[in-house]
Simulated scan of single mutants.
Amino acid sequence: MGTSEGRDRDAISELSSLEDAVRRRLYAYVGSCDDPVDREDAARAAGISRTLAAYHLDKLADAGLLDVSYARAAGRGGPGAGRPAKRYARAERELTVSVPPRDYGLLAEVLAGAMAADRSGTAREAVAEAARATGRAAGGPDLTAALTACGYEPSPTDDGTIDLRNCPFHRLAREHTELVCWLNLHLVRGMLEAGGQPPARAVLAPRPGRCCVVVDPAQPEPEPEPEPEP
């Protein structure tokens, strides 16, 4: 497992790959895509040549920030189709650095374990109230900005739904899924309340690779009742 100091030293070395502005752009683009991207698309998004993109993408992969796979373009296969193209996706592993060493993740694990052991439901309701209050404090008129600031990576869809591409508590969610989903739900509902929107827009919809919460399209205002005729 290694010491905290050793993990921080490794993380600093790996995160230093993002010091370069081009690599930050490439990493942000790859992270914004649902599917692995090839070098051509990444180069186009970053406004650089394919050769330069390939160099920086491989450096990010060497640092453990991107995962690499191989696939042919859609519709291409069989003899003469050429070699599968190298594709990149954001790695799931997390990198954090604390100087001096701190381990807030361990504290969260202890608290989550204690709450999971509470069979009375009191701790669960306390989590909901605290999460909602935190969401109200973090929210405001711009819901997208509030969600982004909290690490959710909101992605609006064509039908008005806001998909949350990242769970800010992913590491904890793997061990305490139900509790973290409950927290996420009420945190986002608090943000909606802060912006004067119906909190019920936030609903649970667990899917692989996403936060367990989605924000449904805005509910239309009810039509006013017609005035009675004299």
Results as ranks from 00 to 15, higher is better:
residue 103 D to P: 06
residue 80 G to K: 02
residue 88 Y to D: 06
residue 181 C to N: 13
residue 56 H to M: 08
residue 123 A to V: 07
residue 183 L to Q: 02
residue 212 C to A: 14
residue 49 S to L: 06
residue 113 G to L: 12
residue 5 E to S: 13
residue 139 G to M: 05
residue 106 L to G: 11
residue 45 A to P: 08
residue 53 A to M: 07
residue 108 A to K: 09
residue 105 G to K: 04
residue 135 G to N: 11
residue 106 L to K: 02
residue 31 G to A: 03
residue 184 N to K: 03
residue 98 S to A: 15
residue 196 G to M: 04
residue 109 E to Q: 13
residue 171 R to N: 11
residue 139 G to H: 07
residue 146 A to M: 01
residue 199 P to M: 08
residue 60 L to N: 10
residue 228 P to T: 03
residue 110 V to A: 15
residue 15 L to G: 03
residue 86 K to A: 12
residue 77 G to R: 07
residue 185 L to P: 01
residue 227 E to V: 11
residue 185 L to E: 05
residue 159 D to P: 01
residue 73 A to H: 13
residue 180 V to Q: 04
residue 84 P to W: 04
residue 183 L to G: 08
residue 207 R to A: 13
residue 175 E to D: 13
residue 3 T to W: 00
residue 189 R to N: 04
residue 85 A to C: 05
residue 190 G to Q: 10
residue 134 T to H: 14
residue 68 V to S: 05
residue 80 G to R: 00
residue 178 E to I: 01
residue 64 G to P: 00
residue 182 W to A: 13
residue 18 L to C: 00
residue 59 K to V: 05
residue 126 A to F: 08
residue 223 E to L: 14
residue 119 R to E: 11
residue 115 M to H: 12
residue 68 V to G: 03
residue 174 R to W: 09
residue 109 E to Y: 15
residue 4 S to F: 09
residue 163 D to W: 10
residue 144 T to Y: 01
residue 9 R to V: 10
